[in-house]
């Protein structure tokens, strides 16, 4: 953590408030706490915010608030940007079908690489509680931490060009879920029938920055049943607040 956050210009409409050059829950919590305070104060001229691992990008309208005033206002909020400033987070249950050669197509390879039987990989992964640091890159893609140390694994040496939508992947100490078919460098342990991004839904994005996520192992038949309900708009994800 820097002694004082840096205010880095990002063109004429944005400033990056950088807290550290490191990834940690403490740093990310301060980023999200600052974002939350900005939302609560509704600072005139602040248009939009984008939290990431260790920085908050703040978009502003310079005709409403100048650089000096913006930086002074943000700086005054920094001391309050602490974990206790954040509201309670949501806990979202994500059903995941692991034990299936098609859906969890790299589960066995992960087990071999880590020297664990596949069912132990599943037990460790579904027993953990993950924290969504931020949503980014593509619509609805969560960057999550909270992986058990024993599942730490280098990313794929050669990223695949296509990862099916819903794939649950691990890489380094992170876990992610691919909302849409996309390239990927994470090992795929399983697949969720939930849709993390559905442009046809009134609220197209399932997960939010700060959510906690738990995976619930399901078998293939339950996967198919939930997938059908999701497609018909009848499935509600279990969310505790």
């Amino acid at each position: 953590m820097y002694p004082e956050p840096k205010f880095l210009p990002a063109g004429d409409l944005a400033v990056s408030v950088e807290f550290a050059d490191a990834i940690s829950p403490e740093v990310n919590t301060r980023v999200r706490a600052l974002e939350y305070l900005i939302q609560q104060k509704a600072i005139p001229g602040v248009v939009e915010t984008v939290p990431t691992f260790r920085a908050l990008l703040v978009y502003y309208d310079p005709l409403l608030i100048g650089w000096d005033e913006l930086v002074a206002t943000l700086r005054s909020l920094i001391p309050q940007a602490q974990p206790e400033a954040l509201p309670p987070s949501r806990l979202v249950e994500v059903p995941c079908c692991y034990d299936d050669d098609e859906l969890g197509f790299e589960l066995r390879a992960v087990g071999e690489k880590l020297g664990l039987p596949p069912h132990e990989v599943v037990r460790l992964h579904s027993g953990a509680e993950f924290l969504v640091y931020f949503i980014g890159f593509t619509p609805g893609l969560p960057y999550m931490v909270g992986m058990p140390d024993r599942l730490t694994i280098p990313r794929l040496e050669k990223p695949r060009t296509k990862t099916p939508a819903g794939s649950v992947g691990i890489g380094g100490s992170q876990c992610c879920i691919y909302p849409v078919e996309s390239p990927g460098g994470f090992w795929v342990l399983g697949r969720t029938p939930l849709s993390l991004y559905d442009p046809k839904r009134p609220d197209p994005i399932l997960l939010r920055p700060g959510d906690r996520v738990r995976f619930r192992p399901i078998d293939r038949s339950e996967f198919e049943r939930i997938a059908g309900e999701v497609a018909g708009g009848r499935f509600l994800a279990r969310v505790e607040t």
Partner: peptide, 10 residues
Amino acid sequence: IISDGIPLGG
């Protein structure tokens, strides 16, 4: 870098 937000025109 550690991934961060990309401004318009970045």
